[in-house]
Every structure is written in structure tokens, then in C-alpha cells.
Nucleic acid binder design. Structure first.
Lengths: 339, 339
DNA sequence: GTGAAAGCGCTAACAC
DNA sequence: GTGTTAGCGCTTTCAC
């Protein structure tokens, strides 16, 4: 139904290439009247070039796809990451396609997602930290689809945050305020589960320990597996924070809202009685109290990954060195100098 | 660089149509050996059909685009909505493209986003509640792009939640627990700003008032413009909740975390001393305490919108009646029977 | 059983 | 200044 060059050429009484050249600004050679006429008819008819035809000619779709799980609870791409990707792609007039892969099917040997089955994008951003089947990787490899991994620690073709340095930075931030009694709190991972968790769980902790050690302060690590079931989390946290020997400062891997809420329920005032820094994709202000946050450089990861992918699309088969992005402290109102 | 039918036809020593027919399962007529050979070479070479060529032939891209602001803080599509859209489209092998439009440019007269400039999708889901320029609508109209609006109240071609009924439902939920002293709290909108706010702000309130009136209970409406600046929010809320005449139950338009946190800071215990229900896209458990929530039917809106769009794509130019979706109560642990 | 030819919308090379 | 021709990858029709 849509309007094609042919339609315009008929309406304007000229040939198809004439229309094409004029509409693409390459029609200087043509008579001014012809040019005007063509431009006018194109506008009147509401012409839009057919992206399929363009893609075929150019051998490029000007589109990349983001591969992620369909389970939106599990692995949503943070808004800023998407923003970074978008803003990098936009100037190149490139588009983003979402490819959400159903976890159930992903393991089945025969399943090939449509996005891989068809050649429809110039490259892939893969947003899987784990649970991405070997077979998918083989497929991507076999099809030679330019791909960059997001938030996965590899030597090549990936962009991820520097969680170790982030851990150091956040700890030093509290140390600089005079705190010594700083606990590291990760209520999503029990100590025996740390090994199989996302690398950020290990690296942030390691960064904390490193910084504490360097400052001659005694690390205090609180781990626990209450991340999944919110039912256990609050009792666990109130028990911890209600005790007399509770830490004076906390660096939290996540679940910052729970911790602040538990503190409030225990009558522990933030920041007067407890300084509190958390890691997060973005500083949160849901509490009405902006949380001092070591912000994951999501946007930067998105930008870097997109830029790398563009690179890879242009020069296929080259391995690109991993890009590691630094955290940023977002000042909030949950920390006070140690007394 | 990618493999085409031509490549396969060369490698297998047959003609292109032969390959095409066989790969598309329409090659019963062909010799078994030919068939096997073609299938094998296709697999070996890693053939993937070119989506551009297919789109050209079929006159369909099997792709829809979601139009929204590039400002990811403002109008992100809720995960469940996207999930609903995806799950509706997936069985049809259709893809979702993200079109994030920069707010700054959107007002400029000359700007036409690439997604509209090119014919590259079969239809549009428009996720703008307000701030979508008239000119964009004209463009979409002019280009006759099948479109459905999400979360916008119109007579036609849109899907949105029934906020009025949602307000009634949430209020009746608290009334059924014996509560009478139920306040409606919206700290994002001052009363004089309600008129220009999203319709949900008015409708949920109206639903509350309606249900209270029907029950013979006295409405108590607390409005205030502290949504944007988190700095004011906490003081405002603690002042409210610290007072002796604070309500025994609250129905909150949003900012549920702030309210619960403020209550905790005031020493007001939830749910013993304060029953608390909030509207939200999804029940939140960040607090470690699942909030009893009137859930916006995001997923349902996504499903409905996607289904309508598919309809519209097939039969262009038909107006579809608006689809209105009901809320759902998600039980949490923030309510108790009135004493 | 298989291949040749045409056409989808577009652009680039070349002829007049 | 403008039109003709060819070809991108694919499917469909039809001839052999």
C-alpha cells in the first residue's frame, strides 16, 4: 500500500532513477522544475523509502539487536544502559531491536531464535551474565554475527563495570569520612553461593576488603541469602541492625531500600547513627532520602558496547579488547562523618 | 558477506529456485538426493534468509516499533507491558524495535524521526501520555501507519488501565477490612496541578471518592507537589504521619516506598498502626515487606495493544474501539483489619 | 524433477 | 537533463 518511487515517477511523469536521485539530493543536474515537481509529489503522496530495499542494496540493515532473556524480572537492561546504546547509535541513524529469548526454549537443542535464524541485524549486543547456552554462542559464531557482550567479564568483545575498583572507591569514600567500623553487606548471596554468583558480587567485596586492609581497618563482611525471598530479608536485617554491636557504616551490595527501611524500623537514624553507601545502577530517591551511591557506569557501558559493536560491524572478525568502565560516586544524604 | 541462496545454489550445483523451494519445505517434488544435498550445504554454509529481501517480497517487515521518549527517566515502558507486547508478537515471529525520540528535537518543526521517515515497520505502539506533538500525529496519519496508543484515554485505537475502577477496588479492599479512616495520598500532584496531570491522577482519586461515598465514609484527600524533588518529600511525609490525627489507612497514588519509610521514621508501625495500599505497576518488595498493591494491568495493556495493532495491520484504516483493562489486587503485608 | 523469467523497491553505471 | 539497464536476495509462475 505504501508509496514507492514508481508511484512518484508515474505521478510526476519522470523515470524512477530521476526520482531517486532527486530525493537523495543528488539531482543537481536536473531541471529545477523537474526537481520541484518530484519533491512536491513525493511529499504529497507521503513517500517513505522502503528500509528492506535499502538494506538489500546496502548490505546493511542499520539495526542492531539486544539479546536478553524474556523474563523481565531477571535481567532487564537498565534504562541508562539502553540510553547509552541509543545515543551512540542515533547519530548513525541506526535502530535497536529487542530480542527477548524465552528461557525455557533456550536450552532445547532445536530452538533457534528468529533473530538468529534470519539475517536482519548488523550486530548483537548480548545482555546475559550467565545462563546463556553454549549452543547460542556457537550459533552466533557460526553465523559470524558481530557481537559484543554487556556486563560479562571476558578478554575480548565486551564492556563491563570495574566492580573491584568500584568496591575500593566506595570503601575509601567512607574511610575518608573517618569511618573505620564499616561493614560490607550482601544479603543476596550466601557465602557458599558467592562462587557461582555474578562476578560483581565477588569483585565489589574484594575491593572493599582491599581498601579496608590498606587503611588498616578490620573488614566485617555480612553475607546472607535473603535476596530472593523478601520475607526473610526484613527480619534478618532488623535483627542485624537492632543489635548493640551493629556497624557504624555499611557498604551494601544491593537491596539498599530494605536496609534503610530496616534501620528506620529499628530506630537507627540515617545518617546520624548509621552511614550508608550502596551500589546501584542509579542513585535511588524512592525513600525521599537520596542514597549515597556508588553508581554502576551503566550509561558508559552502553556507550562503549555500542561503539565497539559499530567498530566490529565495520571490520568483522577482529577481536576488540574488553572495555572496563569506572564507577562514580553519587552524593546523597545517607552518610555523615564518623564521630 | 553472509550466505545467500545463490551461494548455496552454486555450491550444490542446482538453481536458486530449487534451493528456495527446498529450504521452505515446498520441495516435495524434488529428488531426495537433491533435497538432502541442498539442506546439507545450507546448514554447512550457515544460511540465514535476508530479512530485507523477505520484507520486500512480502510487503511486510514483521516488525513493530515502540515510540517513546528518549528520556529514560520519564516514560520507560514498564517491564510487564513490554513482556505482554513481546509474548503477543512472538508467536507471529514478529519483532519489536525501540524508537526513542529525543524530546528536544520533537518540537522542532523540521524534525522527522528516522522511524517515521523510513518505511521499516508494520505498525507503531505509541507510549506517550502527553507531550507528544500534534505534528507527529499528523505525520503518522499522513503516512497511514497503523498505530495503537498505550496508556492514553481515547475513544479509539488505544489500550489503557481502568484507573477509576482501580481506585474503587483499592478503596473497597480497605473498607472490607473494616477501615473507615482512609486517606488518599498523592504527593506528586498539587491540587491545582491535577487538571493537567495524567488522567490516572484524577481517575484513581475519583474512584476513591466514589467508593468512600458509597460506603458512607468521609474522604480525606492529601495532595502535594513533592513528587519531583525528593528533598521535600520526606519532611512533608514525616510531618503528616507524625501527627496525632494521622489516618489509620492510606491509599497512595504512588511513592509508596517514601510513605512506608516515613512511617518507619515516625515510629508508626505498618501494618499494625497503619494499613497501607498503593498503586503500582508491579508489587514492590524492595522494603523487604511486600506492599499490598493495586496493580496496574501493565501486561494486559501490552497484550491488548499488541493484539489490536496486529488487527490494524491486517485491516488498515479501521478504527478499533478502546480497550480498558482492570486492576488487580496483589496481597502484601502492609494491611491489617481495622481495630 | 528442474530451471528460466519476472518482479518486489531501490541505486549506480552508463547511454543518449 | 533524462532514461535505460542491471543487480541486490528472494519467491512465484510457468515452461521443459
Amino acid at each position: 500500500m505504501p508509496v514507492t518511487l514508481k508511484d512518484i515517477s508515474h505521478a510526476a511523469g519522470v523515470s524512477i532513477p530521476t526520482v531517486s536521485l532527486i530525493l537523495n539530493g543528488k539531482g543537481d543536474q536536473y531541471n529545477v522544475n523537474t526537481r520541484k515537481r518530484v519533491l512536491k509529489t513525493a511529499k504529497e503522496l507521503g513517500y517513505r523509502p522502503n528500509a528492506g530495499a535499502l538494506a538489500m542494496r546496502r548490505g546493511r540493515f542499520n539495526t542492531i539487536a539486544i539479546l536478553q532473556t524474556a523474563d523481565y524480572e531477571k535481567n532487564q537492561l537498565p534504562g541508562p544502559t539502553l540510553g547509552g546504546i541509543r545515543s551512540t547509535l542515533e547519530p548513525k541513524d541506526m535502530h535497536v531491536m529487542l530480542a527477548a529469548l524465552p528461557d525455557e526454549k533456550l536450552t532445547s537443542k532445536a530452538y533457534v531464535p528468529k533473530i538468529l535464524r534470519e539475517w536482519m541485524t548488523d550486530g548483537l549486543l548480548i545482555n546475559y551474565t550467565h545462563g546463556f547456552p553454549e549452543r547460542m554462542i556457537e550459533l552466533i559464531d557460526e553465523f559470524r554475527i558481530p557481537s559484543i557482550w554487556i556486563n560479562t567479564k571476558q578478554k575480548h568483545d565486551c564492556a563491563y563495570p570495574d566492580d573491584l575498583a568500584g568496591g575500593v572507591m566506595a570503601t575509601e569514600y567512607l574511610l575518608a569520612l573517618g569511618h573505620r567500623d564499616i561493614a560490607y553487606m550482601d544479603v543476596s548471596h550466601a557465602s557458599d553461593k558467592l562462587e557461582e554468583a555474578h562476578y560483581s558480587a565477588r569483585d565489589r567485596l574484594a575491593g572493599y576488603e582491599q581498601a579496608m586492609k590498606a587503611a588498616g581497618a578490620k573488614p566485617r563482611v555480612i553475607l546472607g541469602d535473603a535476596g530472593g525471598s523478601s520475607a526473610n530479608r526484613l527480619p534478618m536485617l532488623t535483627a542485624l541492625l537492632g543489635r548493640g554491636d551493629r556497624p557504624r557504616a555499611i557498604l551494601a551490595y544491593g537491596h539498599s531500600i530494605s536496609i534503610a527501611y530496616a534501620a528506620a524500623r529499628c530506630g537507627v537514624r540515617i545518617p546520624e547513627e548509621l552511614s550508608f553507601v550502596s551500589f546501584d545502577a542509579k542513585q535511588r530517591s524512592d525513600l525521599g532520602l537520596p542514597i549515597t551511591t556508588a553508581e554502576v557506569p551503566c550509561m558508559e557501558v552502553g556507550c562503549a558496547a555500542a561503539k565497539m559493536l559499530l567498530d566490529k560491524i565495520d571490520r568483522v572478525d577482529r577481536k576488540l579488547p574488553a572495555k572496563v568502565l569506572g564507577f562514580r560516586m553519587a552524593e546523597g544524604r545517607t552518610v555523615a562523618p564518623a564521630k
